[in-house]
Design a protein around this nucleic acid. Sequence first.
DNA 1: CGGTATTTGATATGATCTATAACAATTATT
DNA 2: AATAATTGTTATAGATCATATCAAATACCG
Lengths: 181, 181
Amino acid sequence: MTVSKTAVVDPAKETAKETAKVTRAARKEPDEGTADGVALQLGELSELLGYSLKRAQLKVFEDFLRCVAPLQLTPAQFSVLLLLDKNPGRNQTEIANTLGILRPNFVAMLDGLESRDLCTRIRSTNDRRSHILMLTDKGRAVLARAKKLVAAKHEARLNELLGPANRAALLEMLATIAKEF
Amino acid sequence: MTVSKTAVVDPAKETAKETAKVTRAARKEPDEGTADGVALQLGELSELLGYSLKRAQLKVFEDFLRCVAPLQLTPAQFSVLLLLDKNPGRNQTEIANTLGILRPNFVAMLDGLESRDLCTRIRSTNDRRSHILMLTDKGRAVLARAKKLVAAKHEARLNELLGPANRAALLEMLATIAKEF
DNA sequence: CGGTATTTGATATGATCTATAACAATTATT
DNA sequence: AATAATTGTTATAGATCATATCAAATACCG
């Protein structure tokens, strides 16, 4: 209903199909990760969406960390900076909630960002319980550099692997699952 | 290169533009998860593949746990049972490696499965260091029931949400990322 | 053959992530 | 004013993930 783009097919198999990864020369190559010579049968595992989902997510996060390593930002930290930039004047509960972070766990995370002078907590004058969160100038600068790294290295690589149309379709389906599942 | 957001479809960005912050009008609905009346702007977050990937993965695992709750199986445990069924006679290192589980961490996991009589470790006669892993009869029975639950409840729900074609396309893209990223 | 290196399962341990309860200060409700 | 609810916080426990190390067994190699 919501998705059904019908034209989602056409996967990116043409890009780098069999990358000269010849089979097994049966010598002594710990290439398949098996230590044994014969790769295991994944069986129904390759049809389990959750399995591929988890594996893909790990790879993507791994690549994100590499691409943004010079700035020392984790995906979670990056998402916080992005959200603070787009939503100035919000408090910890609001930011944590929309990111699916539990408030107790958000405290240490903010401590880290604040100690690096990327954001600040400001006691609200309206409600003196809450802390208004703001990016610092340095925080904005770091975020800007991070965005460029992510776009130029990280997302570009995904675009290259999947193709823009597939990447968009993938994103939409993931968002659908995240929202309505 | 240059990620060029030319053909990016851009979903809900036209909806609430500058939001004159007078959109309260709420009585007491914790509907948006924000506790506040106005939902936050995700901004570039909705274009970050890793973000949607993680969120979708959490939802899918959550649903998996619900669907297979009567059998008390986690996604990781289910994947082990599946792999043991399809690859009898393998040892711990091989199974753990193909699942991306570190050997030290696989020990406790196997202890759990073995204590529930779902699988057994058998000292190999060829190589007396290694343990051959086998499903027990009970393990096979539980796996069979789990497969049915997963197919009937879990994957069926995803199929319903995305449609079979989209689901297949999604699976293939995720597998591509997991393999070649 | 004998000595060394490697592999396997296991233990210990630490880091990180996630989840829950509880508390003081503040605000909201009645 | 009394009670309830919210905010940030601490403490804590569990789960997940990662590394070093070990004894036993095997592989390797001169």
